[in-house]
Write a protein that binds this DNA or RNA. Structure first.
Lengths: 259, 259
DNA sequence: CCGGGTCGTTCGCAACTCGCGAACGGAAGA
DNA sequence: TCTTCCGTTCGCGAGTTGCGAACGACCCGG
């Protein structure tokens, strides 16, 4: 059994529950839908879908808006609880805000879950930069500075597991898409203690990230500063910003020690 | 069939899905738990609970941390989607921030769902006041200014339905706990266009709220300003703040018109 | 170093659930 | 008015699922 599940398929799974999960995922992706629409998409009978929606509705996981069903706001409540369960959440959140202020740039905080990188906080500094990601968004780990910082502190077999499960899809022309290249990059990150993203996600955007690790080696996540290439260059990109990120990371790690 | 489901129980429900929902709710309340713990609490066999957790884990709705299971961060993602589905979310969010800045107090935005009041945004003004509620939190509608503002714009039969389903539990000694008293209060709110909470939630805290309605009568939610009784009194409490709230509500309503 | 207790996990079996498909009723459009 | 589309209901039989017992790993105390 893997330590932190990303394994493909094992043990018994309950068909009815699987169907409800499929229904929920479809509702999320479609931004709401009717019974017939869902039944067609999922290859199920209308009666079946209706039964599932009815059960989910009683449990307040979906809302009914006329004849359309949508994912309910109870997910916000559950999500908030999930965030609170992240050990360093409160400290990291506060420190991310400070990092944004100090740098004047865009600061973010990410953790790993199920082999994905999940954004948990994002703060605009004085010079706002728009990004497509939102809090709760799940992204591949290999193609952002934050994700690579996280991967760099995971044991090799876990990295393999994640690559196996999630793949290394190309994001831009700078994306690392082969396993060897990833290993090399992670090694460089471990040496520096800092991960870079040089226009790998978005043209003209650079990002500097540091992993957050406990003294016992546990990995908490990563924090970063992103900004346009016009401001992120030279000594600022190589020294100044990395030091700010590193020192914020240290503060979080120290505060995490007595939790 | 009710227009916006709060009805008790009708139609077929799927037992396996019901069990998984119970498991998720229990996990949320217990902040994570093991198989045996859950089985005892829910009156199910260990094997059954394990099967459900396994299915939920495959679908990434729970995380496994050693032998404990917890609600996953995927709920954050789903929650974000649910928020985006709220029509006035973006406008209301922005206007809530502005309201906090103008008033210097604590501003909030709430919508109704499944007979609950759900906080969707909260902003601290210059003079921060701590409150227990968080974004995504679900509260009874009858015991806050925001909730009463919402109820005041709902048709009477829907109010009855909600009272039937959720009850009128006492929060403080000022809580309205009988149906007649509630009707009277809602009538006063409709006359003024403004709902007050005079230490009904927390001693020393006052709140001023306005409902958000479309021109066709649809109800979007409510926004409010809360502050300590020391600052919320006299003309400021009766005129100044209500006008600020009202005008913010108008901006939202105007922007909502062309959506 | 051993043994009792705990835990998560697996598995076979029987009961009953649940997915199907057809039929119904209402709403909207031609 | 007739057609079509939708959500909803319902009976039936295949097969899913919940149970309980058994297993193996782990921890702790003796």
């Amino acid at each position: 059994m893997t330590p932190n599940g990303t394994e493909a398929g094992s043990g018994r799974t309950i068909r009815a529950v699987q169907i409800s999960c499929d229904v929920l995922r479809a509702l999320r992706e479609m931004d709401g839908a009717g019974v017939t629409e869902l039944a067609d998409r999922l290859g199920l009978s209308k009666g079946t879908v209706h039964g599932h929606l009815n059960t989910l509705h009683r449990n307040e996981f979906v809302v009914k808006d006329g004849d359309d069903y949508r994912v309910s706001l109870q997910f916000v409540d559950f999500g908030e609880h999930a965030k609170e369960n992240v050990k360093v959440y409160d400290v990291a959140r506060k420190e991310t805000e400070e990092l944004a202020e100090k740098s004047g740039e865009f600061a973010q905080f990410m953790v790993e879950e199920h082999g994905w990188g999940v954004y948990l906080h994002k703060v605009n500094g004085a010079n706002a930069v728009k990004t497509a990601s939102y809090v709760g968004n799940r992204k591949h780990l290999h193609c952002t500075a934050l994700g690579k910082a996280i991967l760099s502190e995971l044991p090799r077999e876990r990295v393999d597991e994640i690559v196996e499960a999630r793949g290394l899809p190309r994001q831009t022309e700078n994306t690392i898409t082969d396993r060897e290249g990833l290993y090399d990059e992670l090694e460089r990150i471990r040496e520096r203690g800092i991960a870079y993203d040089d226009e790998e996600v978005l043209q003209g955007l650079r990002c500097v990230a540091a992993p957050l690790t406990g003294y016992d080696g546990t990995l908490y996540g990563a924090i970063s500063v992103s900004g346009p290439i016009s401001r992120m260059k030279g000594e600022r990109y190589r020294e100044e910003v990395p030091e700010m990120v590193q020192s914020a990371a240290n503060v979080i790690e120290i505060n995490a020690a007595h939790l």
